[in-house]
């Protein structure tokens, strides 16, 4: 009897408390939806945004931050349907995580003026089209790529370095060009082999591209996009070194990964979320850089990297942060390294 009445009391307390609690929280709870091209576990582009959202959820708590996703949205019209659907369901922030979604977003955003949208990777917020509720984010991946290129130039013995990319545009081109610039900045004598294999998913072709580079005596490889694990294993077999990007790729081959450039989208997402919470949607553009730590060079702790190389890498990182080394891209898409004059003492 006693137990039963106790139970009833507990239940009553819970029944009264829970709705009021959840009501209080509901006001603060922010709901985010993300639409992305590949799967959430691609160890590359799509995974990087999911990791960031998970980190934010960890920090803010599941009661305050909820997110949903649509993955494998290679078909742009399906992605557009998903974006529209999330917006009409009242999500506070809808993220279009793929540069191919831009034109759809420009059509959708004006229909939902109270919803915040974010589009990556780009700097275009459609301000010139009179749209104010679209944020943009991008990664200046040439920065970390340059640092890794400098390291690679110091580590190579054969003076041949290979870079594998998917197609020659966007983020991949930025990484490849930055890496190459870093290598040549450190040592113009080095031969840099570049191959865009025209596929994001063909692991066997990536492996064959690595084979071709290794046969040319390359002793350091790097690459970007989700098909690179095929190349990593070839590097491992041949004892060549590997530099990763987009996510920490150390787990693929702990023996040979020197470092990875890691994207941390929370740097872009947190200010957007603050805006949304404050109700002041302003549609700004954010870039991940080494300076704001949206880009980080994560060293593989199991790899014995010479102190000298690490020190140089850190110097270069500092120089990029200070702006003494910066990058310019011209009309033709050619990247040049700009070194500011050392300040007068």
């Amino acid at each position: 009897m006693k137990k039963l009445s106790l139970l009833i009391v507990v239940l009553l307390v819970v029944a009264i408390a829970v709705p009021s609690l959840s009501a209080a929280r509901a006001q603060e709870k922010i709901r985010v939806a993300v639409v992305m091209p590949s799967t959430k576990s691609d160890l590359a582009f799509s995974q990087s945004i999911v990791d960031a959202l998970l980190a934010i959820q960890e920090e803010r708590g599941e009661d305050a931050f909820e997110f949903v996703y649509s993955e494998n949205m290679f078909v742009v019209e399906d992605a557009a349907t998903a974006l529209r659907d999330y917006a009409s369901q009242g999500y506070d922030l809808v993220i279009a995580h793929g540069s191919q979604y831009g034109s759809s977003l420009a059509d959708i955003a004006p229909d939902f003026p109270d919803t915040a949208f974010a589009w990556g990777t780009t700097v275009d917020t459609f301000r010139d089209q009179g749209i104010t509720n679209v944020y943009a984010y991008e990664a200046r991946s040439e920065q970390g790529a340059f640092v890794q290129g400098v390291m690679a130039a110091m580590l190579t013995k054969s003076k041949v370095i290979g870079i594998i990319g998917p197609i020659e545009t966007g983020d991949a081109k930025l990484y490849v060009d930055g890496f190459k610039a870093g290598v040549l900045w450190q040592d113009p004598e080095i031969e840099v082999l570049v191959n865009y294999i025209q596929s994001f998913s063909d692991l066997a072709l990536a492996a064959a591209a690595a084979d071709a580079m290794l046969a040319e005596n390359a002793d350091i490889l790097t690459g970007t996009a989700q098909m690179v694990p095929g190349a990593v294993n070839k590097a491992k077999e041949a004892g060549a070194l590997w530099f990763g990007t987009q996510a920490n790729q150390t787990s693929l081959a702990p023996e040979i990964v020197v470092s990875s450039q890691v994207y941390d989208w929370t740097v872009a997402l947190n200010p957007i979320i603050e805006d949304v919470l404050a109700g002041e949607i302003e549609g700004e553009a954010y870039s991940l850089t080494l300076e704001n730590e949206g880009l980080r060079i994560e060293f593989n702790e199991d790899f014995e990297l010479a102190e000298e190389v690490k020190a140089t890498a850190e110097e270069v990182i500092q120089a990029i942060i200070d702006g003494t080394i910066s990058f310019e891209i011209d009309e033709e898409g050619v990247l040049t390294v700009v070194e500011a004059e050392a300040e007068a003492e």
Binding site: S38, L203, A207, G230, N233
Partner: peptide, 18 residues
Amino acid sequence: SLSISLVNVFQQNMTAGQ
């Protein structure tokens, strides 16, 4: 012959039309 001999890893749609 792809996943345990040529590339030693699996990814979704790794056959890419082969």
